[in-house]
Design a protein around this nucleic acid. Structure first.
Lengths: 172, 172
DNA sequence: CGGTAAATTGATCTCCATCAAAGATAGTGG
DNA sequence: CCACTATCTTTGATGGAGATCAATTTACCG
């Protein structure tokens, strides 16, 4: 699924992509309404948890309470990572970070870390990474030319993990 | 105060500026260690709240529990706003948004919304906004030429609020 | 009042956005 | 089953916003 924040003026940006098991909607607790729209990119099963019950339960179960706080905290840390990405990385670095992140998350769910199908369009990736779809496409092509990955439309295979990681660590 | 996330490779980015009454450090709950360094930009009084006691107390006081969740949720929403800014706004829009945000926060604390002193350097602003210090300086100068603000080093006076807001709403 | 850090301003360059067009893919209906 | 259409992707050519490099100027502090 993808979550989009939308600006007053109509501009919108993908704030995150979600996979099986992810908890989402935490943004609504503060004000009562959601600041994101979330859209499924493929058939998806969703479980709704009323936040009031979660709060009540977590009062009785300290471990649940703590777990909830961990999840919210992680979301904040994740967002900081994205801010770093958007604020100080080049197109290539952004794509490399994105692919490695996806790879990790697929692996955590028991799928192959090296071969997967992108569920989102180039435009959605670009929106998330602060790039235009053409730049996303070009950068992926260049990765392929350099032997880092193989792309064919939405199908991706990571060939050279350390090469991708090197893209992120070289600067300074 | 300013909070900086630092990347493995040494790059760092300002993740936020804090003012009196702000709660900070929420990023550490997940992993146990802080992913941000926070640095005071002027003499500051800080109160430490052990998170364990906060959790315990909030189990006994549902209103406190809810308040805590609101604060964490707001932090997430705020970060999404910054992501939108970094991902899809021009230098001028970023600066305008930044100044208006500061203005609001000063006003909320009983200070003048139109005249204040920037506590951070141009470089720190730039780091937060994903810009270089020269661009920050140039953009502020251009705002002044256009009669939107008056700047003299760190001292800022907002002359034309609606003009600044218009910068944010024009697109699309 | 000298020394250092910060800010301003100018000149040039680079990366990515933009504009444009051609391929690829999937879904639809005859 | 296949033409037809809409959407997505790739690739090329060009332009522009902001980065980078560089030189002053201004403020701050002991």
């Amino acid at each position: 699924m993808k979550s989009c924040v939308l600006h007053d003026d109509g501009r919108e940006q993908v704030a995150g992509f979600h996979m099986a098991g992810d908890l989402l909607g935490l943004d609504a607790i503060g004000s009562g309404n959601h600041t994101c729209d979330t859209l499924a990119l493929e058939d998806t099963e969703v479980r709704e948890i009323p936040f009031a019950s979660l709060e009540q339960l977590s009062r009785e179960m300290p471990s649940l309470q703590h777990q909830l706080h961990r999840i919210m905290s992680r979301e904040i840390v994740r967002d900081h990572g994205v801010m770093l990405l958007l604020g100080s990385m080049s197109a290539g670095e952004r794509l490399a970070a994105f692919l490695l992140n996806l790879s990790q998350r697929f692996a955590a769910r028991g799928y192959s870390p090296s071969e997967f199908r992108l569920r989102m369009t180039r435009e959605e990736m670009g929106s998330y990474l602060g790039l235009k779809l053409e730049t996303v496409s070009r950068t992926l092509s260049s990765f392929q030319e350099r032997g880092l990955i193989e792309v064919r439309q939405k199908q991706v295979r990571i060939v050279d993990f350390s090469g991708l990681k090197a893209l992120l660590e070289q600067k300074r």
